[in-house]
Simulated scan of single mutants.
Amino acid sequence: MTTDIGAAVSARGLTKRYGATTALHGLDLDIPRGSVFGMIGPNGAGKTTTMRLLLDIIRPTAGELSVLGRSPRDGGAALRRRIGYLPGELHLGTRVKGREFLAHYAEISGPVRKGAVDDLADRLGVDLGRPVRSLSKGNKQKIGLIQAFMHEPELLVLDEPTSGLDPLVQQEFHAMLHEARAAGQTVFLSSHVLSEVQQTAHEIAILKQGRIVERSTVAALRENAVRHVKVVVAEADAAAARAVLDALPGVQGVAATTNGAGTAALSATLDTHVDAFVKAVARLDLVDLTIEEPDLEEMVLAYYGTDVSAGADAEPAADEPEVVR
């Protein structure tokens, strides 16, 4: 097998072992240029290991890897200047002020458009005149985002990018991602929270213990996700309504409750058989009907069972450089 050099990121059989522990098991991955691609998985699933391999911070045990048409190992500093990277564990202990810190990384990353740093600082709401070490976790994260975005790289690699950010800043970050994609940049971001990527990513890979267990568009995931439904009928019609629900394909866990006002509520979960469900319950004498939005979090958790903590093949912890180019 060979990697797709036309993709922003392409991997075949990518494997990483730390002694007896395998963090990645033969990963195959293609990320199209100009897309926003999200990788979902609990801590220890292998997300950070994958991203470090792209930056040549660590090197694969086996497999092939191409980033922007180059091998990370051969591309060197020239390739890294085409990438904006935000590590998942951002350690910023420097005494220098935010503006000086970013000026230093601007010299490393390459040309930065005049005014770009101030524009990003204004959007994210961070004071560049303060020493970096004095900033809160959220404001340090903003500094990390600025250094990743400021040189408008071809590829953005963002590991848990909204960690420590308040909801309003998260929305601004999402707008930045949409703008990056519109400008032709490629974004590869990771998270253990599905809602963080479903607002911005077109395609998602679900990672479990170093293996991709599902890859799909957000739209397809929504179509296949479980919905919670509730049918309210007159109490006298409850038995007949339950019989209808029990006979329908895709309906599970039917439970009935009465409210003392002469009605009964039947709750259940529903998979993709929405059309059959709606046509069947339309023949009932309904008091109320609720079909909730698909719960993507619930669907993703089904891949992990009840335990979403680091698995047996979790990637070992490692010290993260402050900011890596």
Rank of each mutant, 00 (worst) to 15 (best):
R70Q: 11
E100Y: 07
Y303D: 10
G260L: 11
D319E: 14
R222V: 11
D127Y: 02
P131C: 12
T3W: 04
L29G: 13
G305P: 10
A247C: 01
I291Q: 04
A238E: 10
G41C: 06
A205K: 02
H151W: 00
K137D: 08
E100S: 13
A116P: 07
E315D: 12
T21N: 09
E154Y: 14
L86S: 09
D288I: 07
L54Y: 06
A225M: 09
L221S: 04
A23D: 11
I5D: 14
T94F: 05
I108G: 07
M299H: 01
G6W: 04
Q170G: 06
P249N: 06
T200S: 10
K142M: 03
F188Q: 13
E214L: 11
S66C: 13
R82N: 02
P87E: 12
A238G: 09
T22K: 09
R81D: 03
T50E: 13
S309D: 09
R12P: 03
D319P: 02
D246L: 11
R17I: 03
A302S: 14
T50P: 15
A20L: 15
A7T: 15
L194E: 02
K208F: 10
F37C: 06
I206D: 12
R211T: 11
V112S: 08
P153C: 14
G210R: 15
M51W: 09
L53D: 12
E298Q: 15
T257A: 03
V287T: 15
P321L: 09
V244M: 02
G144S: 08
R80G: 03
F277W: 15
T186K: 01
F173Q: 06
S309M: 14
V112R: 09
D159L: 00
I31F: 01
G46P: 10
A182F: 04
S66Y: 03
I83H: 05
D28A: 08
G138M: 14
A276V: 05
I40R: 06
Q209P: 04
V324S: 14
P131M: 10
M150C: 07
A236V: 07
T15E: 13
A268W: 01
V251H: 03
V126L: 08
I58S: 07
V157H: 02
P153H: 12
V187N: 06
G6V: 07
M1D: 13
A182V: 03
L14E: 10
T22R: 14
A77G: 08
G63N: 06
M299G: 05
I146M: 04
L194Y: 01
A241Y: 00
E154Q: 15
T48G: 03
K97F: 05
L177K: 01
S267T: 15
P321E: 09
T3Y: 07
F149A: 08
A239T: 08
V232P: 12
Q198T: 15
F101W: 10
A247H: 01
Y304M: 12
G76S: 12
P316W: 08
L284S: 00
T257I: 02
A238K: 13
G311Y: 00
A247T: 02
L29H: 13
D295Y: 00
R123K: 12
V300A: 12
I58H: 06
E107F: 11
Q199W: 00
R211C: 06
G19M: 01
L54I: 01
T3R: 07
D166A: 03
K230F: 03
G46N: 06
I108F: 03
T61E: 09
A280R: 02
A265F: 00
A220S: 14
G115N: 10
S190V: 10
Q170R: 13
H174C: 01
